[in-house]
């Protein structure tokens, strides 16, 4: 019998916002993302991406998924449409701290650097919609936090609609404008948690408050 990963799942992602899809491990978050990316076709339902099918999408997967036989820069350029292959990427590499490693092969990078290269590839395409599938898992907390700040600064410089999948409440509270909370499998929406505070003002005190009110609204979730 086929496994039902999601059922009666419906949500909106406002354009230009950073939205998180938050739910327990194995609840069907990644499946949802794969459907939106066109990688899973075994589903019934519909979805609408920005740009009416013309807009580009980009994805940062759980694994960096860089081609080991191409350098960092070649990996990034390969993802661009042919007429944009030659464009200047200096500022993007600079902002992600990749300038010194742009000519290295992925095997020569740490996992943190490889993740940054995957972010660079996603942002280089200037997508109408950016998907992130737990891009910071299996990193130590310090590196992950650093990369979250990097992601925010690059995203602020190149705003796009972003949808990130995570099971980390703190990560979601730190990054997003709204959190869509999913139930355990089969996934459906439990509720939406809006954060109207600008990200700069989310200091540890505010984060702790946010966390408390999140757990009050969604007790027992994560």
């Amino acid at each position: 019998m086929p496994l039902v990963a999601i059922r009666d799942l419906a949500f909106d992602v406002p354009e230009g916002e950073f939205t998180c899809l938050l739910g327990p491990s194995g609840c069907g978050k990644t499946t949802t993302l794969r459907i939106l990316l066109g990688l899973d076709t075994d589903f019934s339902g519909s979805f609408q991406l920005p740009g009416k099918g013309q807009g580009r999408v980009a994805a940062v997967f759980q694994e960096p998924t860089l081609l080991p036989w191409r350098t960092v820069e070649q990996n990034v350029r390969l993802a661009l449409p042919k007429d944009e292959r030659g464009k200047n990427l200096d500022r993007l590499f600079e902002s992600l701290g990749l300038t010194v490693v742009r000519n290295l092969y992925p095997a020569e990078l740490s996992l943190g650097l490889a993740r940054r290269a995957a972010l660079a590839r996603a942002f280089a395409t200037e997508p109408a919609m950016l998907f992130l599938d737990e891009p910071f898992v299996s990193l130590d907390e310090q590196t992950a936090t650093k990369l979250r700040y990097l992601l925010l600064s690059v995203w602020a410089a190149r705003p796009t609609t972003a949808l990130m999948v995570t099971h980390n409440v703190r990560e979601a509270l730190m990054l997003s404008d709204r959190i869509i909370v999913l139930s355990a499998r089969p996934a459906h929406v439990l509720g939406t948690f809006l954060i109207r505070l600008p990200r700069e003002s989310r200091n540890p005190q505010v984060m702790a408050d946010l966390q408390r009110s999140f757990h009050e609204r969604f007790p027992g979730v994560l």
Partner: peptide, 20 residues
């Protein structure tokens, strides 16, 4: 996974053969 990456970034058929 490389193939899925190529699908998401709409990499052309010939380039997939050559680079992936």
């Amino acid at each position: 996974r490389y193939w899925e990456m190529a699908t998401v970034y709409r990499i052309g058929r010939l380039e997939r053969i050559r680079h992936i």
